[in-house]
């Protein structure tokens, strides 16, 4: 009986090496850091990780079709501002969020048009969008952060909970499951992977690679937009101007780390979210340890490198990176 368990454990470790390390790390945190395992802390992690997950999911969609979206952070920023601005102007929660998502979709379409129809390399196109969006953010908030107060309904969106579960967690969970099902179960999901895996083979098989890319960039924009709206709710307002690169690394890290969690090393939404939560836990634990927040950015970079190396050891390339 013990033998069976040991063999099962060994197999698990072999196949899910990275997951094992993650579990072990979390265990270490729980054991050595008293505050980590508290309910409040865990809820915090869930909420912050949820926001990050949306960005990471956006990046994942685009990476799946073999593209790249440098503008997710910028879209996230501007939608935070849009949403906060609309709420202050009294447009109501639903409309504000809807407009944010629509704005995200709009920027996603802008990316799509450049990449798919004008055939600009994804990196350049999305960097261009990043510039434009950053500029628009500035134009919109004139360099001031927007402060919200006395918006209980709006705040409850990201800061509240239903039946004890944080709302953000519910929203992200639902979205993740929906995306997961669509990718696995429907033809168009499969075709997105095919487009990223070998677009020539996909085209030769009659697959509409253009449609796959349209879906990916559109979804990326929408998810970033939704993330921005929820962020506005979470931090009760918006920041003046973030750095364009700030979220990109974390989004990449979560996407690639998530891809190492399943046997085949494919990018997948579930893995991405789990990785995003793990990275958030990492940041959180390190802060609790009293490690100065100064180190945190470097940590994420290291995590990404490790994810890339471990997850792709032995394989020839890092997934489907067609940057230029």
């Amino acid at each position: 009986m013990l033998n069976v368990l040991i063999t099962a454990a060994r197999n698990f470790v072999k196949n899910y090496f990275v997951a094992t390390i993650m579990i072990a790390t979390l265990a270490v945190f729980c054991l050595t850091c008293p505050n980590f395992f508290s309910i409040n802390n865990l809820l915090d992690i869930t909420k912050q990780g949820g926001l990050l997950s949306l960005l990471a999911l956006a990046m994942t969609m685009v990476l799946i079709v073999g593209g790249m979206d440098m503008s997710v952070g910028a879209i996230y920023d501007i939608c935070t501002n849009f949403c906060a601005g609309m709420v202050i102007s009294g447009y109501g929660v639903f409309l504000s969020v809807a407009v944010s998502v629509a704005a995200g979709l709009g920027f996603g379409i802008f990316n799509m048009v450049m990449i798919v129809f004008i055939r600009v390399p994804p990196f350049i196109a999305t960097v261009g969008t990043m510039f434009v969006v950053t500029g628009l953010t500035f134009a919109y908030n004139k360099g001031q952060s927007i402060l919200l107060s006395n918006q209980p309904l709006f705040f409850s969106l990201a800061q509240g909970a239903t039946l004890g579960i944080p709302n953000i967690a519910i929203i992200v969970a639902v979205i993740t499951v929906v995306i997961y099902i669509c990718l696995r179960r429907f033809r168009y999901g499969l075709y997105m992977y095919a487009t990223g895996g070998n677009s020539m083979a996909a085209k030769a098989a009659g697959i509409n690679t253009t449609l796959s890319q349209l879906i990916a960039y559109g979804m990326s924009g929408m998810l970033s937009g939704l993330g921005g709206a929820l962020a506005a709710s979470y931090i009760s307002g918006s920041f003046a101007l973030g750095s364009p690169f700030e979220f990109l690394i974390t989004a990449f890290a979560a996407a690639f780390l998530g891809s190492t969690l399943i046997r085949q090393g494919e990018l997948n939404p579930l893995g991405t979210v789990i990785a995003a939560l793990f990275i958030t836990s990492l940041n959180n634990a390190l802060t609790l340890y009293g490690v100065s927040f100064l180190i945190l950015p470097g940590m994420q970079g290291t995590v990404l490198i490790l994810a890339l190396v471990l997850g792709n050891w032995g394989k020839k390339q890092t997934g489907q990176m067609t940057i230029f």
Binding site: V132, T134, L136
Partner: peptide
């Protein structure tokens, strides 16, 4: 703000 936007657009156009 508008300056940023114009810069961004022009930059994007040139790059494209």
């Amino acid at each position: 703000g508008a300056r940023f936007v114009i810069q961004g657009v022009l930059l994007a156009v040139i790059l494209l």
